[in-house]
Amino acid sequence: MEHSPVIEESALKALQIPTDGTDVWEIDVKQLKFGDKVASGTYGDLYRGSYCSQDVAIKVLKPERINKEMQREFAQEVYIMSSCGAFLLSEFMTGGSVYDFLHKQRGVFKLPALLRVAIDISKGMNYMHQNNIIHRDLKTANLLIDEHEVVKVADFGVARVKSQSGVMTAETGTYRWMAPEVIEHKPYDHKADVFSFAIVLWELLTGKVPYEYLTPLQAAVGVVQKGLRPTIPKSTHPKLKELLERCWQQDPSERPDFSEILENLRHIAKEVHH
């Protein structure tokens, strides 16, 4: 699995990215050490490495595969990462993804741990949205676990700066996690990420893949035309159930934003703790 750049507020200082408004900066290549290749794709390879003794993942693009569109996409990704305060090289996440934990390792989250994970995700998403960035592909495969069991939002490959967001296409993102307005090619905003978060929360609660008996396309049609949603387990904490249902409302304006979600989750976590 590709380990993508993650939100890390201290990273701007750590990599000494200029904060004077210029976009041009570079790392000290002499401090960059390559390790094993961990993934290979059509457009590039991913290596484990270190930068100034910090474990990082290094993305190397294949020159023969790079066209204008790829350059534009990569520049967009770099811009998003730097404006979010993210490692350009990216921290190397040792724990894999939440998707792998749930579906490959058959891991489960008990309520206190589940709430901690949901709070971690909400912090990352709130930070992105405050910086006018919509993720557009929030799902458990893009949530990485570090060595301290902190979950971080990853994969900025399809994220877009909000001011540039017009009508986005449904080919972006993943149908099982996608908001109805995105599936329908309608204009959308940051509330599309909130819908995806609800599906992620359901996945954390159940350990199942959303709409597992349907093809992605059947799921998409059901979500849009019939208001289809996964079934929430009866044992779910009532306040968590209520929050989840609000997050996947058909009408985006009825969904809360991440600052409110964060507040709600912290409140539930306090109740559970006492």
Rank of each mutant, 00 (worst) to 15 (best):
E77A: 08
E77T: 05
V78Q: 06
Y79A: 14
I80S: 07
I80Q: 07
S82C: 14
F87T: 05
L89H: 01
E91G: 14
E91S: 12
M93Q: 06
M93K: 03
T94G: 12
G95K: 01
G96Y: 00
S97D: 00
V98W: 00
V98G: 05
V98A: 07
Y99I: 04
D100Q: 08
D100A: 13
F101E: 11
F101P: 10
L102P: 10
L102C: 14
H103N: 08
K104T: 10
K104Y: 02
R106W: 06
R106M: 15
V108N: 15
V108I: 15
V108H: 11
P112M: 06
P112E: 04
A113S: 13
L114H: 03
L115G: 07
L115D: 04
V117S: 03
A118T: 08
I119P: 11
G124V: 04
N126Q: 11
N126K: 11
Y127S: 13
Y127G: 14
Q130F: 06
N132G: 08
I133V: 13
D137Q: 05
L138Y: 00
I145W: 00
H148V: 13
H148F: 03
E149D: 13
E149F: 09
V151Q: 08
K152P: 12
D155P: 05
D155F: 01
D155L: 09
F156T: 07
F156M: 09
G157N: 07
V158Y: 02
A159L: 12
R160G: 15
V161T: 12
V161N: 15
S165L: 15
G166F: 03
V167I: 12
V167E: 08
M168Y: 06
A170S: 10
E171M: 15
E171I: 14
E171P: 09
T174E: 03
T174D: 01
R176G: 10
R176T: 06
W177P: 04
W177F: 07
M178A: 05
M178L: 06
A179E: 11
P180H: 00
P180G: 07
P180D: 06
V182A: 14
I183T: 05
I183R: 01
E184I: 14
E184Y: 04
H185S: 15
K186S: 12
P187L: 07
D189V: 09
H190L: 14
H190A: 14
K191Q: 06
A192L: 08
V194Y: 00
V194A: 11
S196H: 00
A198Q: 01
V200C: 09
